[in-house]
Design a protein around this nucleic acid. Structure first.
Lengths: 136, 136
DNA sequence: TTGAGTGCAAAACGTTTGCATATAC
DNA sequence: GTATATGCAAACGTTTTGCACTCAA
């Protein structure tokens, strides 16, 4: 677990790149590009959204972070790299980690259908604790 | 399985509404709003995209069709209502039905985390047969 | 008759792109 | 020095909205 991604991918180690990655980690809320932008802009107000988008896409491509899908109209990123799932609250849109993983099911589906299954993404939805309590 | 959705939801039975629902069924490709629009426009050229979007959202809300998520930048809809999963080809973007369903896992997650889990969405990705064969 | 549904055009939204400039290497 | 990354503004594709009009009930 000590791969230096920047060297592998030959990416320049810019301040912006560091700030974007740091934001995803520090925010720790499965942040969107917008949330990362707002966070980074506080300390480095000249950063542009394009740079945030470019870095997030690149880092997801290289595996430094994870693109966990599009919920509530935006792409969310995760800094936790081990395989796990997510829960999205249908009321407030918050995203939570679900620390389970079914490693066998890709093979099951591949055998059934003849596809080359490379991965799967499992999203639970419902009400988070906060919103559940608010409802009564 | 003979619920008359229009009566339940008090929706007017417009030509456009019928055409949109029919398109989702006839296309049978987990169509996007754009695909539904193009299909319907062939027989009813005056329909507007806004009407297609409005009807798709409404029908997904009421349960007449299923919003199966946002892949490749667009929301896809399914006319098959029984619980099942999907496979998205990362090469061509085609969406296929996977006729499996793990009915117990919502409860497992709920017990673990204290959320009110209402449903889950499982998306497999990889290469479809066509794209797999094209690759060699 | 009347208000839910429509068509249109404009706007909103998230995201990507072209280009001149800045900077990491 | 050079080419990659940046900032900006403009463009993009998807989806939503305001409004006057239409038509299903």
């Amino acid at each position: 677990m000590h791969v230096i991604f920047n060297e592998v991918d030959k990416k320049r180690n810019t301040i912006q790149r560091q700030l974007v990655l740091n934001a995803v980690k520090k925010l720790d809320i499965h942040a969107t590009a917008e949330q990362v932008y707002e966070y980074v802009a506080k300390e480095h107000s000249t950063i542009s959204k394009a740079t945030v988008y470019r870095n997030l896409s690149q880092m997801a491509e290289s595996g430094e972070i994870l693109n966990i899908g599009n919920f509530w109209g935006s792409t969310h990123y995760d800094h936790i790299l081990h395989k796990h799932y997510h829960f999205v609250c249908e009321e407030c849109g918050s995203v939570f980690d679900i620390d389970s993983f079914f490693s066998e099911i890709d093979k099951q589906i591949a055998n059934m259908e003849g596809f080359e299954v490379k991965s799967h993404n499992l999203i639970f939805s419902g009400l988070c604790l906060k919103c559940r309590l608010k409802k009564e």
